[in-house]
């Protein structure tokens, strides 16, 4: 029976860790995802996760035991660079993201190849890129870090939800009427970077974008207010991640790609719903 098998697996702490981290990360990423998609920064997740991958390689070469100490600051710095230079940058949004993204990926792989002491480099790289097992190998300390960071992200989002809406809908109006847009753009950039680094554990560097983009796009098909879209994206994302993790455990499939597959199915259903909706009206 699948239920028995599931209960059997739930006895293991690493499975419980995976579910806790999975739910929190997908919740945070979907909330910010709505803003990023609407601000036309859908690909930022991809870019930043590749930067995080590059930083990971540097951490491995320097033999830093807690690699978060390098990954987090580097990713945050690049996020600020990409999101806050904005309109006046010499190299515009999408081009800058593409450049940073592939650049970091290539240099990261190069560094790993040149300096790695591991016997199975391509295996290591594959794990970081596709997160094939990493969520099932989390230690208690990493889970606590993830919980604390997620709570901070959620608190920021709830507290500044209306400000984030105002800036997303019309940054010029917000700035002209006295909102400190520079500060909030900085805040959003930092939060996005933190979420991406957390999400890498879940689905790996290559698939992070899916967590950011899919729930938001699914919710936007059907719902008509920003609040409804935000709440729906959060629910869709959490449900898809839960389903993905459970199916992955039961069927022995890779966790990251199974979660993304669940997100794709959800997007498909919401797209169909929107077609039915528009036919009725």
């Amino acid at each position: 029976m699948p239920i028995d098998k599931l209960l059997f697996y739930l006895d293991f702490p690493f499975v419980r860790y995976a579910i806790i981290v999975g739910v929190l990360v997908s919740l945070c990423s979907s909330l910010l995802g709505v803003t990023l998609v609407l601000k036309r920064y859908s690909y930022i997740g991809d870019g930043l996760s590749h930067v995080a991958f590059g930083a990971l390689a540097i951490a491995a070469v320097l033999k830093v035991t807690n690699n978060m100490l390098i990954i987090l600051p580097v990713t945050v710095a690049v996020a600020i660079l990409l999101l806050c230079t904005g309109k006046n940058a010499r190299i515009k949004g999408d081009a800058a993201i593409a450049m940073v993204s592939v650049g970091a990926l290539a240099l990261g792989y190069l560094l790993m190849n040149l300096f790695s002491t591991s016997a199975n480099i391509s295996g290591d790289v594959c794990t970081t890129l596709f997160g094939s097992t990493s969520i099932l190998t989390l230690k208690a300390g990493e889970v606590y870090l993830c919980v604390v960071l997620s709570v901070v992200v959620l608190a920021i989002f709830v507290l500044f939800y209306h400000k984030i809406f105002a800036i997303t809908f019309d940054e010029n109006f917000a700035q002209a009427t006295g909102v400190n847009t520079a500060f909030f753009n900085l805040l959003i950039a930092v939060v996005v970077a933190v979420i991406i680094v957390l999400a890498m554990n879940l689905v790996g560097a290559l698939l992070v974008s899916a967590l950011v983009v899919f729930p938001a796009l699914s919710a936007m098909r059907v719902f008509k207010s920003f609040f409804a879209v935000t709440v729906a994206a959060a629910i869709i994302s959490v449900v898809c991640s839960l389903v993905g993790i459970l199916v992955a455990i039961l069927a022995g499939t890779p966790v990251g790609s199974t979660i993304v597959a669940a997100d794709i199915v959800a997007f498909g259903s919401f797209y169909l719903m929107s077609l039915i909706q528009s036919r009725e009206s």
């Binding site: 609407l38 209306h162 400000k163 809406f165 105002a166 809908f169 019309d170 109006f173 917000a174 009427t177 006295g178 909102v179 936007m220 719902f223 008509k224 207010s225 920003f226 609040f227 879209v229």
Partner: peptide
């Protein structure tokens, strides 16, 4: 943009 009219009009107060 998926937002209700009320949400948009109310966002005017964020600067205050």
């Amino acid at each position: 943009f998926p937002a209700s009219v009320e949400e948009i009009v109310l966002s005017a107060f964020q600067g205050k």
